[in-house]
Write a protein that binds this DNA or RNA. Structure first.
Lengths: 363, 363
DNA sequence: CCAGCCAATTGAAAGCTTTCAAACTATGAA
DNA sequence: TTCATAGTTTGAAAGCTTTCAATTGGCTGG
């Protein structure tokens, strides 16, 4: 690979001049500039990012730390960040934490030695990010937190309007005349989960609906968790007629549990999820959900980061992106008859279910 | 950040010795070694990857170039690669090409300046990779191609058993007594698509089934493509009773088209996809599909790459990972009565459809 | 016509590591 | 005791860029 020295020799100028041409760092007169550019062209020269980074104490890399690319919500965020980064000449180093804060810490420590321009982080459970970010900032790297925040986070952040979205979803259920409304939340130590629960509670409170504490079930953010907690809820008396799930994977588990018990969605139980993942349109019934703008979360975070990199030293920014309720088949108005006696309903529904199965044979 | 010089001073040894301790590059006697390690510990020293890379002409980074993380098949591959890379101290730089070979080229050129240890690439359409890879190899970086190969690719590769998988899927349809079997393929210039079509054809040939050329439809790898080509196929006479789709997104479009026309799957038309994406279990009917081991594709590629990095200079390797047919609801045995007169069936089915719609409101 | 100044250009240092040749030490043999 | 040798340790160079102080050249105003 050609280096600056060769360019300098070929263009018959000094090393410094080449650098100045390449970086616009000083006025270089046209004839020289032209000779340099020609040499660059002729040799196909590209500056070594390593040497440049070493000298400048900062590279064109951005560390992106997320729980797991394999979780369907995150790829959109990554893509959004990559698009903005790439179009400004930055690249993304992708790290998965599996929500393990020890693994996250390992990534945070290791990444530092690459002198990234900054970090975009979706923090793991019980993340240590607040401390680490401080040390990154001292080293001149920006850190933006996305989707959820670690405790005591005071830095830049981009999140969805979780409280509001959950409030809107819950209000839909209330407007549909549901009164026995339950929720299955993700891990409550996550700020976004907490916010969603708050939105849920506020909607209930505003409509003067009180529910038994049992109607709030906490679990992990996956299908299995949703499934098992839904079984618990659906066996309670009175049985909830609507369930708000704090994400779509949980909602999917809820749908499975409903079917498992011989109930029907939305006739017996309405369900609303959160995230609006692609598969929500493909389930049967299709899933109502609060859309979270994953791609925009990523682009916004990357832009915020790049602003910092290019010198914005203002106070911490908190961008909150709006959500949108997508109403699909999984929600119906509460019909008085259908849910009082759980056993009877259950067996009646079971009869229905068979006839549906004959045509649909779902799952 | 502390540097080697500080370690050297603190341990009262020379720079060279510190380096030797850190890299085991020469016998260092225990007392010195210990002093160095203590200093490293005390200062929390971590070597600068930039300086190291600059000196060694190679970094601990691996470029991972894929079409789009947002496409549900790829995250598993990325994750597999990242897991193996991370556990060997390497990190992944993720690049999306959107299947655009110009964008791919841009990434290939830009990444070079970071001196990555190697590249894992899922090539874009009409990829220029073969040429570029040569130049990477000259620079001492390994390149492994995954999932599909560019034309004239002779380097290392990891792919799924596409031909065999497609053959197996088609055989299933034949065993189910289908004779009017169509296929909707992805872009035929992709080697994996070509392989799948070959497998499809071989199965037909082995059972002495001949089909009209119209029964082979080419389209893009997405829901929309599958949908529109399925409409074309389903309006043909005789109407195919089974469709093999070259990936699950296409298969999803097929399911939509079937429903749209008032037909039923699997009663009127059986469908098999390829990839076995998660959503296949959630559609109605659930989707039969050829499972492709995405995660293993990633881990295998990364391991192959790391082998090269650590000195394996043998001839090109081609790892072919086995696929597995997952049979779900979308396939049923062909029943004589149901498909002869397309118009009549169609209108009859249309009657059914309305009643289904009343409860399902799908799509 | 010259001093002084500004702008363009230069060369060297610095950033941090690895590596190589050279210097040094200790040990065993003569 | 001394020499040779193997094994340790050292210091400097190299890898490529940016940046800063210094130099050069040309121009302006007196």
């Amino acid at each position: 690979m050609p280096n600056m020295k060769q360019i300098a020799r070929m263009a018959n100028v000094s090393l410094g001049t080449v650098s100045h041409v390449l970086n616009d760092s000083a006025g270089v007169r046209e004839p020289l500039r032209k000779r340099v550019m020609e040499a660059v062209e002729a040799l196909g020269y590209q500056p070594s990012q390593l040497a440049r980074g070493l000298r400048r104490d900062k590279t064109d890399m951005i560390g992106m730390i997320i729980p797991d690319v394999t979780n369907p919500f995150f790829p959109a965020v990554v893509r959004g960040a990559e698009d903005v980064a790439f179009s400004s000449g930055y690249r993304l180093i992708l790290c998965n934490t599996d929500n393990d804060h020890a693994k996250e810490l390992a990534h945070l420590k290791a990444l530092r030695t690459y002198l990234p321009a900054g970090l975009i982080v979706i923090p793991s459970d019980f993340s240590d990010l607040t401390v680490q970010a401080e040390s990154y900032r001292k080293a001149g790297a920006a850190v933006v937190c996305v989707d959820r925040l670690p405790r005591n986070w005071t830095g830049d952040s981009v999140t969805a309007a979780n409280e509001k979205g959950a409030h809107r979803a819950t209000r839909l259920l209330i407007e549909m005349r549901h009164r026995q409304i339950a929720t299955i939340t993700g891990p409550l130590h996550l700020t976004n989960v907490e916010d969603r629960l708050n939105g849920f509670r506020r909607a209930l409170r505003e409509s003067k609906i009180t529910i038994t504490p049992d109607y709030v079930q906490e679990t992990s953010f996956d299908k299995q968790g949703g499934y098992s907690k839904a079984l618990v809820l659906l066996r309670m008396l009175p049985r909830p007629t609507a369930i708000f799930a704090s994400n779509d994977l949980i909602a999917l588990g809820v749908l499975l549990a409903i079917r498992e018990l011989g109930l029907k969605c939305p006739e017996d139980v309405s369900v609303v999820g959160f995230d609006n993942l692609d598969f929500g349109e493909m389930t049967s019934p299709s899933l109502s959900s609060v859309h979270q703008p994953g791609y925009q979360l990523g682009t916004t975070a990357a832009r915020m980061l790049l602003d910092r990199v290019s010198g914005d030293t203002g106070p911490a920014k908190h961008s909150v992106l709006q959500t949108e309720l997508k109403i699909r088949e999984s929600v119906a108005a509460f019909a008085e008859a259908s849910t009082q006696d759980s056993k009877q309903t259950s067996s009646r529904a079971d009869g229905n279910r068979k006839s549906i199965k004959a045509t649909k044979r779902q799952q």
